[in-house]
């Protein structure tokens, strides 16, 4: 195995394209190094992107924020601007692993690892975040929703990698929240999860909403029926019951070592409802 630490995106893309099957991007490494040690993958080349100029920066752009692909969870959580604007995204990223893992893990890595249970992904999808991808054919922007294509699979093409993720501007009286269920309080993979982003009018009625679910299907689910259940309502019990039902109906969970189909179906509805309440509260609404 070889290790390279290019300083430009072009050089990184060239290295990745030179050996598309056996090269891997190293950002935080918190999934990659575990997979290598466990013998699940055996790459010939690791391309460490952390030395690329600007890739560890968070920059204000168009009223939102562009988060470099190598920004760690801990760094994101220390950025007051992002925390204020997208608290749900930040809390989702901060749930990845331990304090130690937070020192290394990245949103882009969490996304590209393409685990159905990735914590940051439902929150990013609810936020309608957009990934910027660089590859042999230049740069393109792709909605985060369209990156995961199956367990361990992404829509990135050979030689492509994510350089940043853009969190858009958000209107006044809008916020987001993310909740996951794990059997312990920390150090677990989500059994199921829900991210909710919404906007309120002056009376506290939800006018816009995006609801995304994790670990209940091979990829993250954006549930439009769940959003519909929220729009036009306050987060009262009936609304949240309708939201929960939409979520339970939409999900396609499996039985595995972490949970059962029935449990995931039930609990994802509970989490979506609780996240919606928190998002409303953060957006300035009353409960």
């Amino acid at each position: 195995m070889q290790y390279a630490a290019p300083t430009t995106t072009e050089e990184a893309a060239r290295l990745l394209a030179s050996n598309p099957k056996a090269a891997r991007v190293l950002a935080g490494g918190t999934d990659l190094l575990v997979q290598i040690r466990a013998g699940m993958i055996a790459p010939d080349l690791l391309v460490d992107i952390k030395k690329i100029n600007g890739i560890r920066d968070i920059t204000a752009e168009g009223g939102g924020y562009r988060i470099g692909a190598a920004v760690s969870g801990a760094e994101l959580g220390e950025h007051a601007g992002v925390v204020a604007m997208w608290p749900g995204v930040v809390e989702a990223v901060e749930l990845i692993g331990s304090t130690q893992v937070q020192g290394r893990c990245t949103m882009a890595g969490n996304l590209c690892n393409a685990s159905p249970a990735a914590d940051s992904v439902p929150a990013l999808v609810a936020a309608d975040a957009v990934a910027r991808i660089v590859g042999p054919r230049g740069e393109r922007n792709v909605a985060v929703l369209d990156i995961p294509r199956g367990v361990g699979k992404t829509s990135l093409e050979a030689g492509e990698f994510i350089t940043s993720i853009y969190l858009p501007k958000r209107p006044d009286r809008a916020s987001d929240a993310y909740l996951r269920f794990i059997p312990r309080t920390e150090m677990d993979i989500a059994v199921c999860s829900a991210g909710v982003s919404l906007t309120l009018d002056s009376k506290g009625i939800i006018t816009e909403a995006r609801v995304a679910l994790g670990a209940v299907a091979p990829t993250v689910l954006l549930v439009s029926e769940a959003a519909k259940a929220l729009i036009g309502h306050k987060p009262d019990d009936a609304t949240l019951a309708a939201l929960g039902k939409a979520c339970s109906d939409a999900c396609k969970p499996i039985d595995d070592k972490r949970g059962t189909i029935e449990f995931r179906r039930d609990v994802v509805a509970v989490l979506a409802g609780r996240a919606a309440r928190i998002a409303c509260q953060r957006a300035g609404g009353s409960l």
Partner: peptide, 14 residues
């Protein structure tokens, strides 16, 4: 920054 040294490559310490 607090990290797990098992999740950092030796090469990254440069």
């Amino acid at each position: 920054r607090l990290v797990c040294s098992c999740l950092v490559l030796g090469a990254e310490a440069d």
